[in-house]
């Protein structure tokens, strides 16, 4: 026995195990939560399709599971999304992701890097126009918005390590979206 003395009243969670009904509540909670933790991780299959109704309330509530990190292989590309904003006078400015430092700022930077990782994909084309419009507002000179913003992805293939080392690869570039200012 630790704590103050043997007469110390147990907390509500611990008090549950002192009664029959409480033990039953604990058993139900443990079983339900265990299913909610394990179930959503079961690989896609006809079986899963049949039983996922059991844990869908948890997933809908925000208790989600997806732990595939660097899998099945780590991404074999290093990437960067930039935007080139063109103003009415013909001048241009390049927008890049904000950087916030490597210690505490790294936690902030990572959210922007995640945006970059996802927004470059053709499957996420729905985000392109609004992203370019936001960048236009971000680089505006006072009230003057750029007339055009071009979204560009730059990437470099990462070759696997071999016994003779690694091979340097060139940077590729592709303009994947153009946003034009609409006046009116």
């Amino acid at each position: 026995m630790s704590g103050l003395d043997a007469t110390e009243r147990p907390d509500a969670h611990t008090a549950l195990i002192h009664t029959r009904v409480g033990k039953a509540v604990v058993a139900v909670l443990v079983v339900v939560m265990s299913v909610w933790i394990v179930g959503p991780n079961i690989p896609a299959s006809p079986v899963r399709d049949k039983v996922d109704v059991v844990w869908s309330p948890a997933v809908n509530a925000g208790f989600e599971q997806n732990w595939s990190v660097f899998s099945p292989n780590p991404r074999a590309q290093t990437l960067k999304v930039v935007a080139v904003a063109e103003f009415g006078d013909g001048t241009t400015t390049e927008w890049t992701l904000p950087e916030f430092g490597q210690t505490i700022g790294a936690y902030r930077s990572y959210r922007w890097r995640k945006w970059q990782e996802r927004v470059r994909l053709d499957s996420n084309a729905r985000y392109w126009d609004s992203s370019a419009a936001w960048i236009a507002r971000d680089v505006a000179r006072g009230d003057e918005l750029p007339v055009r913003v071009r979204l560009i992805r730059r990437w470099r293939e990462i070759t696997p390590l071999t016994a003779s080392g690694i091979v340097d690869t060139k940077v590729n570039e592709f303009e994947f979206h153009v946003w034009d200012r609409v006046d009116g």
């Binding site: 630790s2 103050l4 147990p10 611990t14 604990v26 909670l29 443990v30």
Partner: peptide
Amino acid sequence: TAPDIAPWG
């Protein structure tokens, strides 16, 4: 001091 607690959670 720390009381004893049930570990089910």
